[in-house]
Design a protein around this nucleic acid. Sequence first.
RNA 1: CGCGGGAUGGAGCAGUAGCAGCUCGCCGGGCUCAUAAUCCGGAGGUCGGGGGUGCAAAUCCCCCUCCCGCAA
Length: 311
Amino acid sequence: MNRRPRAVFFGTPSFAVPILEALGGVAEIAAVVTQPDQPAGRGQNRQPSPVNRRARELGVPVLVPAKLDHEFIYQFNAGKPDLAVLAAYGKILPLAVLAVPPKGFVNVHPSLLPRHRGPSPVAATLLAGDPVTGVTLIVLDEEMDHGPIIAQQTINIGPHEHRPALERRLANLGANVLRQALLPYCHGWLQPQPQNHALATFCKLLKKTEAPLTWKEPADMLERKIRAFDPWPGTHTSFNGRRLKILDAEARAESAANPPGTVIIDDETPTVVCGAGQLRLKSLQLAGQKPTAAVAFAHGHRDFVGAILGS
RNA sequence: CGCGGGAUGGAGCAGUAGCAGCUCGCCGGGCUCAUAAUCCGGAGGUCGGGGGUGCAAAUCCCCCUCCCGCAA
């Protein structure tokens, strides 16, 4: 193949945008497939996905199928794609769709496969406390995140990095990997290698019910949740009967006699006693209010220090 | 019209009609070898904007702007 390959891009959230842009650099984008406009924000107005917006700016045809049915497959086929690239599309693809492009589907997955297969790999990485992560390019097969590996690159995780920052870095890394590996794969210079399935781990879709913090848990686990669940489903507790979001905090090993959930003051910083260790609060948000620094929050709420959260 | 909370000195909050307050910060001074500690004093606010009712409005009524939680 000497010409630029024709590719169809599947993706939805902002994570997929840099990857779409990178694809435009190495291939001819026949079309972009993304999720239909979803009700979002206050007022529940329907909003196009970030990938949809970017694709329009780039002047690329956009398909927003509600179902991946025969009509969609017909349209997909009509673009005569050599391959498809998929990054966080948000739906499982039927085999009939996977079978359309001759070179298959290349998936940009933000974890070091076979670790963290599934729909929430970045959150799972942070929850597990992994010191490193990365991006893996695979060829999709009939099982979830199971196909052979085209390329993989690794990055370190910052000691207190939250998911949005890590996701942005992984998106850029994914764009790089795609730029470097896609054409070699298309030309057959790069043979995909099977994953070591024995080492596979799996993650589940995040649920809103995981958002409330349980202070009996160890502080380091709670810090991981705060970093992994940012910005959704978020982490919160309750204070004076109102929902209190914990936006940022750091675990420390110190122990205290107070029961879990008690707010103590440590060197000016409000700190919550946990099942093991303590959580130094850095940024909080009371329902309906703006995010505030934890120190300032304690100044305004004189009964905060000494309170037992989550009760 | 999806439901709901909010806007008060630099920051965070209290204050449902009767002189605009609290914690922190800031400025000046005391104490001190020194200090984020402590003591005394001080500056700083058209109470988001506009209209209305009242002898009197941060507070009650109407309109507007901006911010946020739930919900996805």
